[in-house]
C-alpha cells in the first residue's frame, strides 16, 4: 500500500513544469504598464501624505485670507466712493440732502425691503457660482 511519502513523490514526479517564465513575466510587465499605479504602490509614506494634506490646507487658508482681504478692501473703497459722491452732491446742492433725508424717512420700509432683497439675490447668485464648479 502506497504511503504518504509515496503519494507525495508520485504527485511531485508527475506535476506539470511550466516553461517560458521570462516570457510570462514580460507579458505581465507589459500588461501592468498599461494600468495606473495603485495608491498602495505609489511609494508614499503616511508622513508624505500628511505633509501633502498640511500643504493643501495651508494653500486653502492663504487663498481664503486673500479673498477676505480683497472683500474688505472692495467694501471700504465702495463706502469711501459713496461718501465722496454724497459729500460732493451735498456741497453742490445743500437742500438736496434735506430732501433725501425726508424721502428716506418716509419710505424707509420699502428701502429696507429692497436692500434686503438685493443682498439676498446677490448672495444666492454668489453661492450658486461657487458651488457650480464642484
Amino acid at each position: 500500500m502506497a504511503s504518504e511519502k509515496d503519494i507525495r513523490h508520485f504527485v511531485k514526479h508527475n506535476m506539470p513544469r511550466p516553461e517560458n517564465g521570462t516570457a510570462f513575466m514580460e507579458e505581465y510587465r507589459r500588461s501592468i504598464d498599461l494600468l495606473p499605479v495603485p495608491s498602495s504602490m505609489s511609494c508614499r509614506s503616511p508622513e508624505d501624505i500628511d505633509s501633502s494634506i498640511a500643504a493643501l490646507k495651508k494653500a486653502a487658508g492663504t487663498l481664503k485670507k486673500r479673498s477676505r482681504i480683497t472683500a474688505v478692501a472692495v467694501t471700504l473703497v465702495s463706502i469711501a466712493v459713496l461718501l465722496w459722491i454724497a459729500a460732493a452732491i451735498g456741497s453742490l446742492h445743500h437742500d438736496l440732502l434735506t430732501r433725501a433725508g425726508a424721502f428716506i424717512s418716509s419710505h424707509r420700509f420699502f428701502i429696507i425691503v429692497t436692500f434686503a432683497a438685493v443682498v439676498t439675490a446677490l448672495s444666492m447668485i454668489a453661492a450658486k457660482k461657487s458651488t457650480s464648479g464642484i
Binding site: 506535476m15 506539470p16 511550466p18 505581465y28 510587465r29 511609494c43
Partner: peptide
C-alpha cells in the same frame, strides 16, 4: 512596497502558481 518590488515578488511566485493552475 513599490511596483518593482511587487513584480519581483510575483516573479518568485509565478512558477508554482502556473503549475497549480495548469494541473487544475
Amino acid at each position: 512596497m513599490t511596483r518593482e518590488q511587487f513584480i519581483e515578488l510575483v516573479a518568485q511566485e509565478q512558477k508554482p502558481l502556473r503549475r497549480f493552475l495548469c494541473a487544475l
